[in-house]
Design a protein around this nucleic acid. Structure first.
Length: 971
RNA sequence: GCGGGAGUGGUGUAACGGCAGCCACGCCAGACUUAGGAUCUGGUGCCUUCGGGCGUAGGGGUUCGACUCCCCUCUCCCGCACCA
């Protein structure tokens, strides 16, 4: 191997030693090594079988390690210095693990469907594929410049037809499956049909037409019943509709203040027929399996909150005509069945399906004017209120919606325990889709019910004794039950848990209800009215009795290619046009939407599904594809899935060994991917139960930004500091701290940093500023510290004046051996715990030791110089390769063995221990490392200063910890 | 409001319950220099009468000993938020 560097001939560096590690030399080295890595396939990771298995024998005896990042969405702005933090973290880790004897898979791909690319395309008139592909090329060039060790043979983008074929294939699997509640897992839909035909299973509640049985149904009716069981299903329900964006959104994509996560458009609830995925069936498993994952607690907590399990009871209330036969029942969900004696009215969500049938024909003569909203009949009041509720955006519902509103249906239910009439209202503070969409209101113990009761003049019955100093309102705390007894049952005096148990028992015995668990999680709204996404592999018959029913496109016809269209922009509306309806761009591609297919009963005309999948679909399973990126027969060879992702021991969930990405995906990507993975597991396509065994959220990099006197941002790069003041063009400016971005005019790119310092310096700087999971400020002026470190390391190995290698056959002295082995130990620890700052600090100490121990012109012990190069190799790989080559090694340092500390050098012969008197350090004494407590105490007493402190005092106790300290406690 | 996390020099940070501040930026001084935004060396928590004293957001507790464990308070960050 030839070395890359030649002496500097640049006249502007006059006076600089000719073989100094300058930015220019660094970049020369970096480019040369990046080319060589490519040419030699240094980072090609062999699979055990299949097309990428060449060279596997070299790594066959190594344990595997699968390390990856959340893949980037290629925006037109390219990367800024904040983006590579995670990518470098996984790069350092993967390089370390490779050197430490693992077969490492470290791939990278691109998440390329989605709104931003489409919006940019709409602006520029370019096809989104064109802009997306050029953005991908730009980012992949930026990544290459940083020296990352991705196996580029495994790189793909979610927009590649060879990839989205399998995204569609997975959709088919989900469509062709149902969730067997008794087995707790997904099963093929054919098995459901067989069991229904055989009579061994009843259809799920609510899926049969009223009063009919499976056996009586005709084939089309049966299709509808089966379709209602599928894990991917069509139904009409209120969904999040963003007119300004022209598409519907999932709950996860709507922010807490009722706006779209992308674009910040108002969102309205509108009933629309849309595709959904039955993620709620997996709520319990998604929740309990969190305990088996090595993820940050905060992230697990976010998922737990999002899933929102809550235990309570369903209670049925008879409505209309008291207890008369034939009356309706309203079922509510409550977490406080213990307060049932205090329920004084019922509230349904405005969209509740029973509203229409329950609404009375007219008001009773003595109707409270507050309850009727001034309408002539209940039906008018209800219609007006429903319209108002549907037209309010989610935002209005929250900001103005704290004032309780609602109308009475003109009917009453009966409290089964008190026999009391409970007026039935609709109000938008009760949400459809949570619980049963109806509540029993207990104003005495629920703040929301209290507020509503105040507005509507409803009675309050306290059933929990508030504390003596309680000043009114709803008491939501604990206390003994009161006012809660009748001839059958008494809860009085019981605590909450006992009361809940008692009343639940009564509910079951009397047929009024039962214990149940409910979740905040809703089914995943899966269709989008956009162009730039995966088409659904679904068609609908145009004619015949089964017209309009969805049919999956056969596997052999996948992928369903996204057609080219003249206009790929969605139809958008005024932001606040709540009455508008979504129109998918693909519905305008008329020669594509209509297709003749033979799906078993001869050629027929079908209409294609014109919605596309959400952005998250492609990222739900990409980690699987990295294992087997070229396979056209299956989404991933099961043997490769087992090798890279399978459980490593009994009880292990399997999955990626280290997944690094931003916390913003806590309840989006990470929940969806877990859901898909569990379906694939249930259907036998993967052996792992979870996609990501260990996950780390990298911190964010923020940067200073500056505003002038008018409050406008000025280019941060042109601000200078002078005497603690910040000046832009001579004028003082104010400093702020915030996200890196165009709007704050504080963007710094990795390209600029590589130009100025070289990639290795940039890498070391980013890794040195803190543990990977910590956010941090960017400070360009501090980068020079990392550059100096690399220059010192270079100088330890290479003579700056002659270019000669300084390593010689000298034995390291004891101090040097100790420094080296301590560094090895600490660097290993820093690498495995992702605290690269610690690793760099210890490398710096070792380098500083060698710098002062071996003056220029003298030889550096070869073993130490080589170990130093190996230690720094994961962090500054190009520099390490160059020095490794100069030290005479023909092969890449990427595959050299990472040093292992020699334990004999980790212990000192003698140690300095602190001597405390009453817990305050008063002296240091030098003792043999293996000195016992008695020897320690003796040495401490022998110290003059300690003797002085002890003179005349009574030593009540002596604490002597060998190797640590001595503490004299005086009395 | 509920839930979670974090408060250490001018800055980023470091410390198995055992010498608080490793390493670096910045700053100060020196060396080498025609020169220094290079490089190297030394110094740098605060106060000090130079003995020492005080210091990890504030207050209490456990302990021989607390940045670390427990309780209360304050501040900041993040998530959720009419979820019955």
């Amino acid at each position: 191997m030839s070395q890359t560097a030649s002496p500097s001939t640049d006249p502007s560096t006059d006076g600089v030693p000719p073989y100094r590690y300058t930015p220019a030399l660094a970049q020369q080295i970096e480019l040369a090594w990046q080319d060589r890595w490519d040419a030699e396939g240094t980072f090609h990771t062999p699979n055990p079988v299949g097309p990428l298995s060449g060279g596997f024998e070299r790594v066959a005896d190594r344990p595997k390690a699968f390390v990856m990042d959340m893949f980037p969405y290629p925006s037109g702005d390219g990367l800024h210095v904040g983006h590579p933090l995670g990518y470098l973290g996984t790069d350092v880790t993967s390089r370390f693990l490779r050197m430490d004897g693992r077969n490492v898979l470290h791939p990278m791909g691109y998440d390329a469907f989605g709104l931003p690319a489409e919006q940019y395309a709409v602006q520029t008139g370019q096809h989104p594929r064109v802009t997306t592909e050029s953005n991908i090329a730009a980012i992949s060039r930026q990544l290459r410049r940083l020296g990352v060790d991705h196996d580029t043979r495994r790189t793909f983008a979610t927009i590649d037809p060879g990839y989205y074929k399998w995204t569609q294939w997975i959709f088919r699997q989900v469509f062709e499956a149902w969730f067997d509640e008794t087995a707790g897992k997904a099963r093929p839909i054919d098995e459901l049909v067989s069991e229904l035909d055989a009579g061994t299973r009843e259809p799920a509640p609510g899926t049969l037409p009223e009063g009919r049985s499976w056996a009586e149904l005709d084939p089309v009716e049966r299709r509808r019943v089966v379709d209602a069981h599928r894990l991917a299903y069509l139904n009409e329900a209120p969904v999040n509709w963003a007119p300004g964006l022209g598409t519907v959104l999932s709950n996860e994509e709507v922010t807490a203040d009722g706006r779209s996560e992308r674009g910040n458009f108002p969102v309205f609830r509108r009933p629309l027929t849309q595709w959904k995925m039955r993620i709620t069936a997996y709520a319990e498993r998604l929740l309990t399996d969190l305990d088996r994952l090595d993820w940050p607690d905060s992230l697990k907590q976010m998922q737990r909150n999002w899933i929102g399990r809550s235990a309570g009871a369903r209670v049925r209330f008879g409505v209309g005509g008291g207890e008369a036969a034939g009356s309706q029942a309203v079922e509510v969900f409550t977490t406080r069945p213990d307060t049932l004696f205090g329920a004084t009215y019922l509230v349904l969500a405005p969209e509740h399906p029973l509203v229409e049938t329950l609404t009375a024909a007219q008001w009773p003569a003595d109707a409270d004017p507050r309850w009727t909203a001034g309408a002539a009949t209940p039906a008018e009041a209800v219609a007006a209120y429903q319209l108002q509720a549907s037209r309010r955006s989610e935002l209005e519902r929250q900001t103005e919606g704290r004032d309780k509103t609602g109308v009475w249906l003109g009917v009453s239910a009966v409290n089964p325990l008190t026999g009391r009439d409970l007026p039935v209202f609709i109000a938008d503070y009760v949400l459809t889709g949570y619980g049963t969409g109806a509540i029993m209101a207990v104003p005495g113990e629920d703040t929301r019910d209290w507020e509503f009761a105040q507005v509507f003049g409803l009675p309050v019955v306290r059933t929990v004794q508030p504390p003596a100093d309680f000043d009114g309102g709803a008491w939501t705390g604990t206390g003994p039950m009161i006012n809660s007894s009748n001839e059958q049952l008494s809860l009085d005096g019981l605590d909450k848990a006992a009361a809940i148990a008692t009343v639940t028992e009564w509910l079951v015995a009397s047929g009024h209800g039962e214990a149940t668990t409910t979740y905040k999680l809703r089914d995943w709204l899966f269709s989008r009215q956009r162009y730039w996404g995966e088409p659904f592999p679904i068609v609908y018959a145009v004619d015949g009795p089964d017209a309009g029913l969805p049919v999956a496109v056969p596997e052999a016809l996948l992928p369903v290619l996204l057609p080219d269209v003249d206009d790929y922009s969605p139809k958008t509306f005024a932001d606040d046009d709540a009455d508008s309806k979504p129109e998918p761009p693909l519905s305008r591609a008329t020669d594509w939407t209509t297709v003749t297919l033979d799906l078993g009963d001869g050629p027929r005309t079908y209409r294609r599904e014109t919605n596309t999948m959400p952005n998250w679909a492609g990222s739900c399973w990409y980690y699987l594809r990295y294992a087997d990126p070229t396979n056209d027969e299956v989404l991933v060879d099961p043997e490769l899935e087992r090798y890279w992702l399978g459980p490593q021991e009994p009880g292990d969930v399997g999955g990626v060994d280290l997944y690094v990405g931003g916390v913003e995906h806590a309840v989006l990507h990470l929940l969806y991917a877990r859901f898909w993975h569990k379906i694939l597991f249930d259907l036998g396509h993967v052996s792992s139960e979870e996609p990501f065994r260990r996950l780390v959220n990298q911190g964010y990099i923020s940067a200073f930004a500056y505003t002038d006197a008018r409050g406008f941002y000025v280019p941060a790069a042109e601000v200078v500091e002078s005497d603690g003041q910040f000046l832009y063009q001579g004028q003082p400016v104010d400093r702020e701290y915030g996200k890196i971005g165009k709007s704050l005019k504080n963007v710094i790119t990795p390209d600029e940093m590589v130009d100025a310092f070289g990639a290795d310096t940039f890498r070391v700087y980013e890794m040195s500023t803190g543990p990977l999971d910590q956010s941090r400020p960017w400070e360009t002026k501090a980068v020079v510290g990392s550059q100096r470190l690399l220059q010192r390391i270079w100088r330890v190995v290479v003579d700056e004046e002659t270019g000669a290698v300084r390593a010689g056959d000298v034995e390291p002295d004891a101090d040097t051996s100790r420094a080296l082995n301590r560094a090895i130990e600490a660097v290993r620890d820093g690498m495995t715990t992702l605290r690269f700052n610690i690793a760099i600090a210890r490398i710096t100490e070792l380098t500083n030791h060698l710098t002062s121990a071996s003056q220029p012109g003298t030889a550096v012990p070869r073993a130490v110089a080589e170990a130093l190069v190996l230690l720094v190799a994961p962090l500054a790989p190009h520099l390490a390769e160059e020095l490794w080559a100069r030290l005479g090694h023909p092969d890449s340092v990427a595959w050299a063995s990472f040093p292992v500390a020699d334990p004999q050098w980790l212990v000192d012969d003698t140690v300095e221990v602190a001597v405390q008197v009453n817990g305050k350090v008063r002296a240091q004494v030098e003792v043999p490392a293996d000195a016992d407590a008695a020897a320690l105490e003796a040495a401490a007493r022998a110290d003059d200063r300690i003797a002085g402190h002890l003179a005349g005092a009574t030593v009540r106790r002596v604490v002597a910890v060998p190797g640590r300290l001595v503490n004299f406690v005086l009395g």
